[in-house]
């Protein structure tokens, strides 16, 4: 052994670091990369709620926006859509425009977007899928212009 006690700065560093780690973990505080480690911490209920974003072309036909086919930069969109209703009007228009651009990137000639809320119970089941189909409710319809934005049941936008 060449040393018996660590230098003061080492002790200070260790306890400050571990203290911060402990505070974030114990309080659920997310100051990335120190986080509250809230992994599946909320109880899920039997009712499944999902969101679907569809592009609408000039003929009124709907095309589902498949984010999995887009670069990683777009793949948080299904999280963003959950809070879509709480965004200010200008924010909603910007997000809407971003998704319309994404639709065009995928080859869809989008003139507007629709956001549907999907409701379904996983039980009973028919084979490996739920027996009941998804009940779709139109939540928002938007285009790149604020004048054309419509909402339906905005209170449901942030479940």
């Amino acid at each position: 052994m060449d040393e018996q006690r660590p230098p003061r700065w080492t002790r200070w560093f260790v306890w400050t670091f571990l203290g911060s780690f402990l505070v974030c973990g114990a309080t659920g505080l997310d100051t990335w990369s120190l986080t509250g480690f809230r992994l599946f911490s909320r109880v899920r209920v039997e009712h499944e709620v999902s969101r679907e974003i569809v592009a609408v072309d000039a003929l009124g036909r709907e095309h589902q926006l498949r984010f999995a086919r887009l670069p990683r930069a777009y793949q948080g969109s299904l999280t963003v859509v959950k809070a879509f209703g709480s965004l200010p009007t200008s924010g909603r228009v910007q997000v809407c425009q971003a998704w319309m651009d994404a639709a065009i990137r995928l080859g869809d000639r989008a003139t507007s977007l629709r956001i549907y809320r999907g409701d379904r119970d996983p039980l009973p089941r028919k084979g490996q899928r739920p027996a009941a189909p998804v009940t779709k409710t139109l939540e928002y319809s938007c285009s790149s212009s604020p004048a054309t934005e419509r909402s339906n049941g905005a209170a449901d936008a942030t479940p």
């Binding site: 973990g25 114990a26 659920g28 509250g36 480690f37 809230r38 992994l39 599946f40 911490s41 909320r42 109880v43 899920r44 209920v45 039997e46 499944e48 379904r120 996983p122 039980l123 490996q128 899928r129 739920p130």
Partner: peptide
């Protein structure tokens, strides 16, 4: 990770159908 489950959900994280619904949703 475990503490978060106890604080935010309590015993129902284990005793309710929680994990079933997580797994059904993941599969569906």
């Amino acid at each position: 990770s475990g503490l978060g489950k106890v604080v935010f959900s309590g015993p129902s994280w284990v005793l309710s159908g929680n994990l079933r619904w997580i797994l059904y949703t993941a599969s569906d």
